[in-house]
């Protein structure tokens, strides 16, 4: 990676304008993974001065500034109780503390990384992203959106819900990216099931969700069937970490375990 210029901006407007001034201008969030890319950045835009690293708890949501580090989010007391702490747990599995002290929640979302352990748990929660120009958009819509126009992510809003959730990341060692990750939430009688690192970008298992949400009672048979449906509907792939078949098998195993846990 090469950076030709560096600008610490004083306002979101300045950041937005600078970002759109040149195709090769880019926001540097934490910058933890930037080194791995071979991109040339004309002007790196630093948002450090904009106090976007605050986490604010409102009556019905947590508003996380885009520049909050993963470690900040992980350690935030209020979030530890939301969806029985699934986000904190998921973040704690990402690399080591030194990386989580640098990587930001905004950078982790905006990159739409297919290996992400941030997106998978967030997807089963009720999450909105707030952009400077585009305004609010749900995380789900953002992930499938083809809109490539550049904007500044300002905050990530997680709505408070009375809900339970489960997250599991299958990894080879403590520093590994996910081979597959699974997140499940249950709010009242509604389940959400998301599977990431398949190895492609996280997705809902919509048919499995429909099946389990229609069931009168979530029995062991329903759980097994739900996992089977998810295994069938989701596309898995092979890379050096694991084969398609193995990914499917472990995703199904963890969907079963997750469902059992959230109905407890």
């Amino acid at each position: 990676m090469k950076i030709n210029g560096y600008q610490t901006v004083k306002s979101l407007e300045e950041a937005y304008n600078l970002l759109n001034e040149n195709k090769q201008n880019a926001i540097v969030a934490g910058g933890a993974w930037m080194r791995l890319s071979s991109k040339v950045i004309e002007t790196a835009i630093d948002l450090s001065g904009l106090e976007l690293d605050q986490i604010v708890e409102t009556k019905d949501a947590f508003e996380i500034g885009a520049m909050a580090t993963l470690r900040q989010v992980e350690k935030q007391e209020g979030l530890k109780n939301l969806y029985n702490g699934v986000l904190s747990k998921a973040l704690s599995k990402i690399m080591g503390v030194p990386i989580r002290n640098v990587a930001t929640i905004g950078g982790s979302i905006i990159g739409k990384y297919s290996f992400s352990d941030v997106l998978t748990p967030l997807l089963v929660m009720n999450v909105e992203l707030e952009f400077y120009k585009k305004g609010k958009i749900s995380l789900e819509d953002f992930l499938v959106s083809k809109d490539r126009s550049k904007d500044v992510l300002v905050k990530v809003i997680i709505k408070k819900e009375e809900a339970k959730a489960y997250f599991h990341k299958m990894q080879k060692t403590g520093l590994d990216f996910a081979v597959v990750n699974v997140a499940i939430s249950k709010k009242a009688d509604t389940f959400k099931i998301a599977v990431g690192a398949r190895p492609s970008l996280v997705k809902f298992a919509l048919e499995a969700m429909a099946f389990v949400n229609d069931a009168k009672e979530v029995t062991e048979e329903v759980i097994l069937e739900t996992a089977l449906i998810a295994g069938k509907e989701l596309k898995f792939g092979t890379n050096s970490k694991a084969s398609e078949e193995y990914r499917r098998n472990i995703a199904m195993a963890y969907i079963k375990r997750g469902l059992r846990e959230v109905i407890k």
Binding site: K172, T173, G174, L175, D176, F177, S240
Partner: peptide, 26 residues
């Protein structure tokens, strides 16, 4: 955990600690 992997053309697949997994303390 460990295995040096190559593509079919002989290129290393896991030439860093992100993809070549030595045991961590966990």
């Amino acid at each position: 955990y460990e295995e040096v992997l190559y593509t079919k053309t002989g290129k290393s697949i896991n030439n860093n600690f992100l993809n070549y997994h030595i045991p961590t303390r966990k």
